[in-house]
Write a protein that binds this DNA or RNA. Sequence first.
DNA 1: ACAAGGAAGTAACGCGCGTTATTAAAGCGC
DNA 2: GCGCTTTAATAACGCGCGTTACTTCCTTGT
Lengths: 340, 340
Amino acid sequence: MATNKTQRVTMSDVARHAGVSRTTVSFVLNDKPGAAIPDETRRRILGAIDELGYRPNAGARALAAKRSGWFGLITEIVTGPFAAEVITGAQSRAWGDRRFLLIAASEGDPAQEAAALDQMLEHRVEGLLYATTWHRAVTLPKAVREVPTVLVNCYDSEGELPCILPDEESGGYRATRRLLDAGHTGIGFINLDPAIPAAIGRRAGYERALREAGITPDPSLVIPGWATADGAYTAACELLDRPAADRPTALFCGNDRMAMGAYDAIKERGLRIPHDVAVVGFDNQELIAAYLRPKLTTLALPFEAMGTKGVDMLAALAAGQPLDTHRVTIDCPLLERSSV
Amino acid sequence: MATNKTQRVTMSDVARHAGVSRTTVSFVLNDKPGAAIPDETRRRILGAIDELGYRPNAGARALAAKRSGWFGLITEIVTGPFAAEVITGAQSRAWGDRRFLLIAASEGDPAQEAAALDQMLEHRVEGLLYATTWHRAVTLPKAVREVPTVLVNCYDSEGELPCILPDEESGGYRATRRLLDAGHTGIGFINLDPAIPAAIGRRAGYERALREAGITPDPSLVIPGWATADGAYTAACELLDRPAADRPTALFCGNDRMAMGAYDAIKERGLRIPHDVAVVGFDNQELIAAYLRPKLTTLALPFEAMGTKGVDMLAALAAGQPLDTHRVTIDCPLLERSSV
DNA sequence: ACAAGGAAGTAACGCGCGTTATTAAAGCGC
DNA sequence: GCGCTTTAATAACGCGCGTTACTTCCTTGT
């Protein structure tokens, strides 16, 4: 209770107050195995801690123990729902190990990224998480080699660093499969930029699902679009304006914003969702998916799970254990709402 | 370059390599005023630092200097756009002072909040930012008194702690004024729960703007709603179904989700936005406001600015300077889009 | 009775660094 | 040559703590 603002309570104060040596206090605080401390002494010490309002100094402890207890997390943008989810996942997992997360944003600027990395290394992080907002290849400053590093939602071109990625292929498969199960056979796919991993993986899953259902994928049903509502609107128009026999009864969109555009195209034509045309999105942007009418069935990128898994792997690496898998993929769960 | 993974380079290594004492190295690193270091010596030391790849140990430095360099930021939810903006603002401002931000989420759970606070105090944060997602009164654990604390987007009932708040009144005024300027005289106000500060302040601003324009506020035009799209939909219906002479030509909504509901009500009646009915939202939830059709004119809560200002005030407090203002309010800027 | 072993506790070192006091050499006026 | 200041650099202490090695006292078995 009686904390002095100008002079923090130290372990020596506690020791003096309890009538023991500082070493003994340290032993009960870390309940050191092998140290025999009678209950009575322990109680006296804990009592003193309580009375004085003692708080261990994490920095000093780290210095003495040569363990900082820090993990670093570098991300492009702290704003934006994706990074926030990664942080949440990593944060909660780290907490369990009594570790703290050092968070920095690069804002896409290599200089800021380097500065952030420097700061982290000066704080002696024991591991580093490097997360991107969209699935792609990255090249990192060499300095990351000074510390165990795990990539989240990205991978390095050299393939040297362990990484955690969303399973785009199974995501594409699952979306398509859901539409097939609902009885659709003509399924249009408004894809992202076909050069990026997400587009490639999802298309592979899309085609695998079709083949499994005995349907030969029709390339003309796959339209690579700009990843915007307007781009998807145009793409959807193209698909919906095909001759009736050829017109898809379902649309699988590269992300939720694109699904918004598709919604507009569908509604404009007096068609109804999901009765006439079913729609599946991707990304699960709550603010869009949950407020569209009808609510959008979509796949979620497992950002939170990736953050958690990232800390998992870091903890293993920091403990010197070898990784079982160098490249981990995590499923994208399907969120059923009302558009299928 | 030649960093040894198993044994970090210390200042003593640098000193030995440069043929000087550790003290001298410390002096050039902090370029201590009063210490006369010839250029030649300085160069030798900097050279050694570079060659060995030395990085100061932030923890050890903090311990010796008795300055942790940390500020803490406790927020309810890391996810969600609001917290992210506060973090961005605080982060970037803190960076300039070579300070790092310790971020933790309470998830609305007092136990987690206390745990987070404990951790922060153990890390010897020199100041604490406590941010909420919506403007309201809070009561904090007593432990916050151990360190300078600034409240962001909230205030304590006892009024003891400095706080930074959005200027709800001027926000309400600005929104209403914008509609008046567009020629509207019957302005409906679908408010939030009338008991919360945001609702009270905005209504005051709304009425002030009306009076300034020579219009006596009509209480029946103000409908307190549930802060949801559905609630606002119902409220909008009520306003729009009034007899033609009495029907408002503009709606001011408590938040953007509510504006979505209002949009639906307006469109259902074959009315057009902004031609027949203008709409102003609040909160500037990008994903909603920017994608609604037409795009929504709305007011932004100044989260990022509040985060920045928060660190500003903390820096002053931590430096022992008195605060000029105990209670700071920050304007809510109007973002013009296409719904007015 | 005595050695052996455990129980309870402590002195002392070091973690990597900031800082103060002090020393050693060099410049300056006379 | 002598004092005196300035310049250049260092020894030594302490920050708060973890940890090792060591001491002292009490049991226990034979």
